[in-house]
Computed example of a mutant assay.
Amino acid sequence: MSEKQLSAVEAELYDRQIRLWGIESQERLRAANILLIGIRGLGSEIAKNILLSGINSLVVLDDGIVTEEEQLKNFLLSKDSIGKKIAEEVLLKAQALNPLVKISADTSSPTSKDGTFFEDFTIIIATGLKTDFLLKIDKICRSKKIKFIAGDVFGTFGFSVADFLNHEYFEDQVKLIAKKRAHDGTETKPEKETVKVKSEIIYPELNKVIILPNTKQSVEHIKKVKRRNEYFFLMLTLLEFRDRQERNPDISNKEKDIKVLQEIKSEILDLYGIDQEKLDDGLLELVFGEIVPVCAVLGGVIAQEVIKAVSLKEAPINNVFLFDPLTYSGKEETVG
C-alpha cells in the first residue's frame, strides 16, 4: 500500500487525528481500501468509526434484506429501508459521515465471491460468517499479504479475532536526554525527547486459533495455556452453533437453542480437556440477539484495531478480544 499525500481539505478535516497519531499514519489511512462483510448492528458501528478515521474507500458486502428488527438496531437505516437491500440502504447515511471517503455497496452473497475479489483490499473485516468461510478468507488474505479481522456480537457477549500477519508498528516512547555540564561547572536539567520505537507481532493464521470439533487441527498448542479465559470457549461454542444451525441463537427458539448450545459447549470443553464447570450454563442465557450498546463498544474496538493495523501506530491486540457479558469489560487473549 503506497501512502497518499493529504490535500489541504483533508489536512484540515483530520487535524485532530493528525495531532494524535501523526501525518504519516493519517496518510497510510488515507490510502487504505477496506472491505466490510456484514453491515448489521455490529457492522454499522465498525463502518461509522473507520469512515470517520479518514480511509480512502469502503466496500460494503451484504446480501441481506432490511427487516423491521434490523432497522431498529442499525442507525444507518430508516423505516423506509424495510424490504430493501441492506448494503444499498446504508450508503446515504454512511456517506454523510465522511463525504471524502469513496463508499460502494455489493449486494451479492459473500460466499459467491472467488479469491480474486478479495485481492485489492488493504484490510478485510468480517462479521456474521460461518467458520469455514472465515478460514477460507484468512487463507486468501495470507497469500496476498492482506490483514484480516473478524468479530461478532451475541447478546451481551462479543469477540474479535485478528490475523495481521507479521505486523510491524511504531510506538512513541519518552526518552530522557542526559544532563550536560557547562564550562562553569553547572549542569543543565535533563530534557525529554519523544522517539519512535519499532516493534513486531507475529500473528498465527486463524485455523490455529479457531479449532472446533470434527476438525483435523490439533489443539495441543492451545491447551498448553492452563488458565485460558472461559469466554474463549463461549466464542467457539457460538461459532459452532452457527455452523451447525446456519443461524445465530434465536430468542423465539430459546429453550431448544440453549439445549443445543449446552451440547456443543460440552463437546468443545471435552476437545480442549477443560472441566465442564469452567463455562457456566447460565452464560448461555445471555447470547441472544445483537444488543445495540454491545455493538457500539465492540464496533469501536474492532475499528480501533483496524486503524492500528493500517496506520502502524501503537500495538494492536494480539490476537483475540473477548467482551465479558457480565462485567462489560474487555479481555485480551493471545491464542495460537
Rank of each mutant, 00 (worst) to 15 (best):
V197D: 04
G128Y: 01
F121W: 09
V9P: 09
L176F: 15
A11C: 10
T334V: 08
Y169N: 13
R247Q: 11
K198Q: 15
F233E: 06
L29H: 08
D15K: 15
L176P: 15
F117I: 02
D270Q: 10
I222L: 13
V101T: 11
I140P: 10
D270F: 01
M235I: 06
D184G: 06
F233T: 06
T107C: 02
R19G: 09
V60G: 05
Y328W: 10
D324H: 10
L326D: 01
A32F: 10
D80E: 12
S108R: 13
Y272N: 00
L236H: 11
G54S: 07
K145M: 07
K331F: 05
S160L: 07
N74V: 02
S108K: 09
K196M: 05
E70L: 12
A87S: 14
Y272R: 02
A315H: 10
K256P: 02
I34F: 08
V306L: 09
L42V: 14
D275K: 10
I125T: 13
R228N: 08
D63N: 14
Q304H: 15
S25Q: 12
E205M: 08
F232C: 04
E45N: 14
L298R: 00
A150P: 12
E314I: 00
A32Q: 13
V294I: 09
V301P: 00
L58K: 14
E187W: 13
E24S: 11
P293C: 01
K136Q: 15
F323C: 00
G64S: 14
T194M: 07
P99V: 03
S218C: 09
L206A: 06
R228S: 08
I268P: 01
L326A: 00
C295Q: 01
F170R: 15
G83Y: 07
I82K: 07
P213H: 04
T327H: 06
K73W: 03
Q17N: 13
G185S: 10
A105R: 03
V66S: 07
I307L: 08
K144Y: 12
K145I: 09
E191R: 13
I307D: 03
L6F: 02
F154I: 00
A96M: 03
M1G: 10
V174N: 11
S44C: 14
L176E: 15
I18Y: 03
Y14I: 09
S25V: 07
S329G: 12
L135T: 14
A105S: 12
F133A: 01
D63T: 13
D15A: 12
